[in-house]
């Protein structure tokens, strides 16, 4: 029974972590779906979101929900700005050029942030630490409940936007075939910009939640989760929103199990091993369709 209890506990930890990955992965997958770019800077956007939330709480004295909203809006705008300045001029450039630019943008955000907020990690104020539910020895703490609750709300909201609104329909059309979408009168620049905005906003929320969960943030905190969220997106099938969520959750659970039962040092290796396995065995991901290159 002891073992089963441990497994369930790790599952809960994994789903909490996985929700964070899912939130970041959604942005990755939306952006990749529409402009076929691995936005290396996406993890850094998440870091900026965490810092904005941190300052809103500690300096601005806001409580969690307003802080989340402030971070969500500001970071969303930052994402749109990044797209406007760095990626839009390269719309017709080879994909590798854009990828290299994204690496440059990533460095830029990391190290300008480091300059302004110093490289030392900041301690997030303790929140919801004393709230916890215990069922048969399995503990779900307040932070985990917060993560799961907010993630669920955002998923519902995103589904509504993408499925029901005009903008959402345009986004889906553009990610299916940008050129045809343009012929149909969709302003693809605007849609891409909105996609970056929404993706970045989701990442910002993930950043603040991670700050609350782990209590510590630093300017390079986005690198690994960024890469892992990409793994999650690929695992679920890149460009597919439910895929990103499922991919994120699977990844979180696998990582929690690996750190709980093998060794925490292999946690990162597990994520990359999954990536390579998926790319080799089923490159289209769990939910994707295989396509052939046209000759």
């Amino acid at each position: 029974m002891e073992l089963l209890q441990q497994v369930v506990q790790q599952l809960i930890n994994g789903i909490s972590l996985g929700s964070i990955y899912a939130l970041i992965a959604l942005g990755y997958t939306m952006i990749y779906g529409i402009i076929k770019l691995i936005n290396f800077a996406h993890g850094d956007i998440y870091m900026v979101g965490a810092y904005i939330g941190f300052f809103a709480i500690t300096q601005g004295g806001f409580s969690v929900v307003p802080a989340l909203l402030i971070s969500l809006v500001t970071t969303g705008l930052l994402g749109m700005l990044v797209e406007r300045i760095a990626y839009r001029p390269l719309r017709k450039a080879p994909r590798i050029s854009v990828l290299i630019t994204a690496i440059g943008v990533s460095f830029f955000i990391e190290y300008t942030s480091m300059y302004f907020v110093s490289p030392t990690p900041r301690t997030f104020p303790q929140m919801f630490g004393d709230v916890a539910v215990s069922i048969g020895g399995i503990v779900i703490n307040g932070q985990q409940m917060l993560i799961l609750g907010i993630t669920a709300v955002l998923m519902v909201l995103l589904t509504y936007i993408v499925q029901k609104t005009k903008t959402g329909k345009a986004m889906r059309a553009a990610s299916f075939d940008t050129e045809t979408a343009e012929l149909m009168g969709i302003n693809s620049d605007r849609i891409i910009s909105i996609t970056f905005g929404i993706g970045s906003a989701l990442a910002a929320v993930a950043g603040v939640l991670v700050g609350i969960y782990y209590n510590s943030i630093d300017p390079l905190m986005g690198i690994m989760p960024g890469l892992k969220a990409f793994v999650a997106a690929v695992l679920g099938g890149i460009g597919i929103l439910p895929g990103a969520v499922v991919g994120g959750l699977i990844l979180g659970v696998v990582e929690a199990l690996v750190s709980g039962f093998v060794s925490s040092t292999f946690r990162d290796a597990a994520a990359f091993a999954i990536l390579i396995l998926v790319l080799l065995v089923r490159p289209a991901g769990l939910f994707g369709k295989n396509t052939k290159e046209k000759v």
Binding site: A93, T101, F107, Y111, T112
Partner: peptide, 20 residues
């Protein structure tokens, strides 16, 4: 070290813009 990385970052972006 921050400036070093910022310079690289800007250099990479400008190269891709003007001399890929």
């Amino acid at each position: 070290p921050e400036f070093r990385m910022i310079i690289y970052a800007v250099a990479l972006i400008l190269l891709m813009f003007y001399r890929p």
